[in-house]
Design a binder for these strands. Structure first.
Lengths: 135, 135
DNA sequence: CCGCATCCTACCGGATACTG
DNA sequence: CAGTATCCGGTAGGATGCGG
């Protein structure tokens, strides 16, 4: 009773680009460009590797519109200082847009940028993986 | 000179499952199963969120066969104790298989399992993202 | 020799209290 | 409500040692 039971027509877990295609694609670039790609991937993995960064982005990936600080705080159960740091990093990486409204009570909304949206299929894939596997 | 120049025919960055499809798919399950999926995703994000886990998996995603401890240590420039911990976690999560050969010099090989391989398109997508964006 | 385990240090993330 | 200040515990990094 631990595995998925009676799964409703799960489409193939073939998320676009395969490993071979990705390798071939990268090798089609000049050396300098390959090096840039390598560095960008490393930086990206470094950012995503920080605690809760993936979880935060995942929330945006499955949310309809913008999210507020307290939304994320409540949903993820993460300390405010840490959340604050993560949001600032994501904002500086141009993955989240920060909009502050001068009201009472104050309101700050975070919205994923297009750069972030083009990253969201990753979270859809992770979600799909979780449907078919356990941990 | 910072952006990509003369990009050779990059295929569309449309990695299979969209956000809407992922949401619809999840909602097609019963509540109990949805809860299991939610928890699995959370655990997965927690594991991937640990420092260097993504980087380690990424190495396997683009490597041909198995990798050795020293390969990863040299490639990622990460402390041996930390690498040791990450490899053990990934092994316990059944994402890496560990094979020790009793030779001189000793040899230990880590091989991604099928579970891990079904996760690799994620890294191909991240790589693809890095081709089209900066950080 | 390689793959770790150990020891220590530095930094990062968690909890709480407090402020604009 | 949306953070910041402070303190503290845990975790990663670096050097070293050692067993296989």
């Amino acid at each position: 009773m631990t595995g998925p039971s009676d799964p409703p027509a799960v489409p193939d877990l073939d998320s676009g680009l395969s490993r071979e295609e990705a390798i071939a694609l990268r090798e089609s670039f000049e050396d300098a460009e390959q090096e840039r790609i390598r560095r960008t991937v490393a930086e990206l993995l470094d950012l995503l590797g920080k605690a809760h960064t993936m979880a935060v982005l995942s929330e945006f990936a499955f949310a309809e519109g913008p999210l507020r600080f307290s939304d994320l705080e409540a949903e993820l159960g993460i300390a405010p200082n840490t959340l604050s740091t993560r949001l600032r990093e994501l904002n500086e990486a141009a993955l989240l847009e920060r909009d502050a409204y001068d009201e009472v009570p104050p309101r700050v909304e975070y919205t994923p940028t297009e750069r972030a949206e083009s990253l969201f299929p990753v979270f859809a894939h992770l979600h799909h993986w979780a449907i078919e596997h356990e941990l």
